[in-house]
Simulated assay, not measured.
Amino acid sequence: MPEEDANGKTVTIDGHRLAISHRDKVLFPGTDQTKGDLIDYYDRVAATLVPHLADHPVSLQRFPDGLDGEGFYQKDAPAYFPDWIPRVPFPKREGGHFLAPRIDSRAALVYLANQAMITPHRYLSPADDLEHPDRMIFDLDPPEGREEDAEVRRAALDLRDLLAELSLTPWVQTTGSRGFHVVVPLAGDEDFDAVRSFARDVARVLVRRHPARYTLAQRKAQRRGRLFLDVLRNAYGATAVAPYAVRARAGAPVATPLSWSEVEGGAAPRDWTMRNLLRRLGQKADPWRDQGKHRYRLDAHRQSLTALLDREAPAGEED
């Protein structure tokens, strides 16, 4: 825990004095969890969370008045942020740029929690090479109008098995919302178009194998109760919820990295919250701690993917 000044309103972390305000403000109505609870959570999880964030710019989802108030995404670090919070010049496709913050320390994480940042969303490319993602992501949510966890578990496992056929080992986390993210770490050789194309072709194989179960149709009306294999996040400027980030939802669920055996055992997207995640980390090491040691070059797997596509008959939705 940080060193607290006598007045209880400032803390010192890594030599930085942080003014802490309105700890008793309720951010999560229904559970009465406060801004102080959020600050304490991020302070205690920082040693695990910061390594997942340190090299990437983030977009901040803030709720100054709690979930009952109006929230917003903050991409551009304002001038009043302390100068020890790094900024990343992030070019816009339409011209110009914004200064994306980077969370590279426990002090930065606590400071932003005090700004009522509930969720940090991590960009898919590192700060030193924004044009080349270092992860490929599949976003899996249940079909519209359904909250059946078994469907997204099955999709995650089907996707894992398919990627294994390509000699790719994926990683999985709950989103803390309705589904799972399946992630393949990348060496950073391909641009976003190449990564998205590869991800789409992986998803096409799964749709061809299970056309009644999965779809790539972007329009909800065309999905007809099938689970959408969302690869659209693999794009310049897109983000994904960071591991161990609290979600801006009732009950303060947390996006939680899992082992595949936990998915097989019935893990659900909202099983972990701000109240029980720290106990989990006390009992189980971070399943994603070694993710950076396992990075892939997709071009080495393209021939195998093409062979799988050729082997499966096109699905009806491809007509």
Rank of each mutant, 00 (worst) to 15 (best):
Glu3Asp: 14
Glu3Gln: 14
Asp5Ser: 13
Asp5Thr: 14
Asn7Lys: 06
Asp14Asn: 11
His16Thr: 02
Ala19Cys: 06
Ile20Tyr: 00
Arg23Glu: 15
Asp24Val: 01
Val26Asp: 06
Thr34Met: 10
Ile39Glu: 06
Tyr42Leu: 13
Arg44Asp: 14
Arg44Gln: 15
Leu49Phe: 14
His52Glu: 07
His56Met: 02
Leu60His: 01
Gln61Ile: 06
Arg62Trp: 04
Asp68Tyr: 09
Gly69Tyr: 10
Glu70His: 11
Glu70Tyr: 08
Gly71Trp: 07
Ala77Lys: 15
Pro78His: 12
Pro78Tyr: 12
Ala79Phe: 11
Val88Ala: 07
Glu94His: 08
Glu94Leu: 05
Glu94Gln: 11
His97Gly: 07
Ala108Asn: 08
Val110Gln: 03
Tyr111Lys: 00
Ala113Thr: 07
Ala113Cys: 09
Asn114Cys: 09
Asn114Gln: 12
Pro120Arg: 05
Arg122His: 09
Leu124Glu: 03
Asp129Arg: 15
Glu131His: 08
Glu131Ala: 14
Asp134Ala: 04
Asp134Ser: 10
Phe138Thr: 04
Asp139Lys: 01
Leu140Asn: 08
Arg146Pro: 00
Arg153Tyr: 06
Ala156Met: 02
Leu157Ala: 10
Leu159Gln: 04
Arg160Val: 08
Ala164Met: 03
Glu165Phe: 01
Pro170Lys: 05
Pro170Trp: 05
Thr174Val: 08
Gly176Arg: 05
His181Lys: 01
Pro185Met: 09
Asp189Cys: 01
Ala194Cys: 00
Arg196Asp: 10
Arg200Val: 08
Val205Gln: 02
Leu206His: 07
Leu206Ala: 13
Arg208Ile: 03
Arg209Ala: 09
His210Ser: 10
Lys220Phe: 00
Lys220Ala: 09
Arg223Lys: 05
Gly225Arg: 05
Gly225Glu: 05
Phe228Cys: 03
Phe228Leu: 07
Ala235Asp: 15
Pro243Tyr: 01
Arg247Met: 10
Arg249Ala: 13
Val254Ala: 03
Ala255Phe: 04
Thr256Arg: 01
Thr256Asn: 00
Leu258Lys: 05
Ser259Arg: 14
Ser259Asn: 13
Trp260Tyr: 04
Ser261Cys: 10
Glu262Trp: 02
Glu264Ser: 13
Gly265Val: 02
Pro269Trp: 04
Arg270Lys: 13
Thr273Met: 04
Arg275Trp: 00
Arg275Lys: 04
Leu277Ser: 06
Arg279Ser: 11
Arg279Thr: 11
Arg280Tyr: 15
Lys284Trp: 04
Lys284Phe: 07
Asp286Ala: 00
Arg289Asn: 08
Asp290Leu: 04
Gln291Arg: 15
Asp299Ala: 13
Arg302Phe: 02
Gln303Phe: 02
Leu305Glu: 12
Thr306Lys: 03
Ala307Trp: 02
Leu309Gly: 05
Asp310Ile: 00
Ala313Leu: 11
Pro314Asn: 03
